[in-house]
């Protein structure tokens, strides 16, 4: 069974989780950081520290994944609420960019209560192009797309795809 096999494989990976950097770099961690090679300090055979090129320490990518899963969970939740008409699509963009109301308010140069108000679909539907432009500039999308309530992937997803292409 594929699932069981995977657990077994991961279990083997876990066994090498020991202090310091001797673990082999796994493809999983390379994928997390798009193959970014970092350097870290490790003792060599003479007990001297040196900078060694290294992939990201395996457990780190586990907690990184955990953090992203949490973000994705929030994004999904927001998507459902937008679909149900409970909040405007600005709520999706806010969550997808890992922002809260305070941060959006700072970026768009508006008071918090205004941003909060714009999250209500009723208010959002009546927003002027000028108000929408502030959000469009922040999220790097067009005003039209905002007006039609399209849910585009966040900035960092797009850019990662572009750099891959």
């Amino acid at each position: 069974m594929a699932v069981e096999k995977e657990v077994g494989k991961d279990g083997a990976e876990e066994r090498v989780v020991l202090p310091r950097h001797q673990e082999p770099a796994t493809p999983a961690s390379a994928e997390m950081t798009a193959g970014l090679k970092i350097v870290s300090y490790a003792l060599n055979n003479h007990g001297e520290y040196e900078l060694t090129p290294d992939f990201v320490w395996q457990p780190v990518s586990v907690v990184n994944q955990q953090a992203w899963q949490e973000i994705e969970k929030k994004i999904d939740c927001s998507r459902q609420r937008v679909a149900a008409g409970r909040v405007s699509c600005l709520h999706y963009y806010m969550t997808a960019h890992q922002m809260d109301v305070t941060l959006v308010a700072q970026y768009t140069g508006q008071p918090r209560w205004k941003v909060l108000l714009h999250l209500a679909p009723f208010v959002y539907a009546r927003l002027s192009s000028r108000s929408l432009a502030k959000y469009a500039r922040l999220y790097k999308i067009s005003v039209d797309e905002l007006r039609h309530g399209r849910l585009l992937p966040p900035v960092y997803n797009l850019e990662t795809e572009q750099s891959r292409a």
Partner: peptide
Amino acid sequence: GHVVRMQEEIGTGG
């Protein structure tokens, strides 16, 4: 997870 991330993520040297 947050504590570990602050401790080990890129920029800490381990």
